[in-house]
Each structure stands twice: as structure tokens, then as C-alpha cells.
Design a protein around this nucleic acid. Structure first.
Lengths: 117, 117
DNA sequence: TTGACATATTCCCATATAGGAATATAATAT
DNA sequence: ATATTATATTCCTATATGGGAATATGTCAA
């Protein structure tokens, strides 16, 4: 088997940096394909290709107006990622707080353990 | 250019479902390679290969004890993902709240707009 | 030393990528 | 009808993947 296809889910779609840039741009509002290409300094065909992937996983939606396609972010599709990763935020915050406590102790009771240089 | 390598960052490492399973397992505590393989019903070589990727992006650390390697999760390495995705959580929560308000209005003032069937 | 166990690595292969370049498709303007 | 503009698609290629299978490496036991 090969690598999990980019179109299989949001995780894979979003792994590509350029696609994250597109998402970040669309967070500010609707943009046409050419707008995106100009703003991100990318060539139009590559933008269209990335948008296709994002569309297939539901991360963006297209609205046709004349010859232009305006793309909108559908942030809901990021939810599985958020829900998977957010529990871990606790973990490193706890570690950080424990480190804070430790530093406090060292400040008030220096060399309690006799390990000082 | 080919696809962004799995070892290039946490986003790419975590795009593979099996690797997320390994991470979720290690969240409960240190595990040896065989423990992981048994728990997740995977073959040992594949587990080792996935662990290599996770190690290279700093998501896990190995501690050797005898002939075993005990792997620990380093959740800090998930931070870039959390920080990228968490701002978007606002977005869909806001949309949800607006929907709630709308439903409330429809409840109290039905057919104000004359669109009823 | 030899054997058993734990883990890592190598080779193989089907599959898909991302970008470049060129072109197709569609809508509008003249 | 023809040209122009906006977007999508196709063809190409180098590159890497993930699993299977086999094997290498390392550690402990007898």
C-alpha cells in the first residue's frame, strides 16, 4: 500500500503547507482562485489543484459567479483535527506548570538537594 | 517535487492513522515496541518503522532497557498542530451559537418573514 | 558458544504525490 | 465569430510512501 491519499481526510489534506496557507488566507474571507494565487505567490494551476483536494475533504466550498470561482473556508471540517489534538494540550500545560513550581522551589529553597555546582 | 515527507514535521507524521493510534496508546504511558504491536494488532516491523518517523519529528522518545526499547510520548511536539488549528475552533462555535439564536427566534416569532410553507 | 528473544533495517512494489508545462473548458467582451 | 480572461485538467517526472517478507543487530540466558 502507498501513503494515505491527501484526499482521504482533513489530516492528510492539511499536511501540505501550501494548503494550510490557502486555508489561513480564506479565513479572512472569500477569495477567487486568482486572488489566492496572487496573495500566496503561487501559480494558478497549483492553486486549483490544491483547492480540489481541499474541496474533496470538505474544507472549502466553491461559489461560481461569472467566470470566477469564489472559495470559502468551511472550518467545521477542521474539527476532527482539533478534537484529536486538543486533549494533548492539557499534557504539555501540566508539564509546564510543574516546571514553574519546581523553579519556584529552587528560588525559595536553593540547594536543598546538595546538587549545586 | 513529491509529497511532503512524513518526517518533515508533526503534521505529516500524524497524517497516518496508525501513527495516531500509536500516539493515543502512548498517552496512557510508556510502552515497549512489542507491547504496542500487540495492543494495536500490528506487526513489529511496521511498528518500528512508524516509531522511527515519530522519533524523527520528536513526537516520541526511546529509552533502552535491556533488549527492549520503551517509547514515551512527547506531546509538546503536537503543539504546532494545536496552535494552528485551535483558532478555527472559535469559528465553528460562533456559527453554532448563531444557529442557536436563529432557532430561538424562530421559536418565539414564527413566520416573521413570511417564508412558511 | 549457542539459542531465544526484542528491535531495527533492508529489499520489494503498487500507488500517489506536487510542481512544471501545456492545454482544455467556460464565460465574457468586442 | 473571435479574442480575452478565469479556472480546471492532463501529461510528465522525481520522489517517497506503507506494508509484506526476510534478515540484521543487539541483548540476555543456558
Amino acid at each position: 500500500m502507498a501513503r494515505t491519499p491527501t484526499t482521504s481526510d482533513a489530516f492528510n489534506a492539511v499536511a501540505e503547507p501550501q494548503r494550510r496557507r490557502i486555508i489561513d488566507l480564506l479565513a479572512h474571507g472569500e477569495q477567487s482562485v486568482n486572488d489566492i494565487a496572487a496573495a500566496l505567490q503561487m501559480r494558478q494551476p497549483q492553486v486549483s489543484k490544491h483547492l480540489r483536494v481541499l474541496r474533496e475533504v470538505g474544507l472549502v466550498r466553491a461559489r461560481g459567479e461569472g467566470r470566477q470561482q469564489f472559495y470559502t473556508l468551511n472550518s467545521e471540517a477542521l474539527r476532527p483535527i482539533y478534537e484529536w489534538v486538543s486533549p494533548y494540550e492539557q499534557t504539555w500545560r501540566e508539564r509546564f506548570e510543574r516546571l514553574d513550581e519546581l523553579l519556584d522551589e529552587l528560588q525559595t529553597q536553593p540547594n536543598e538537594d546538595g546538587l549545586g555546582a
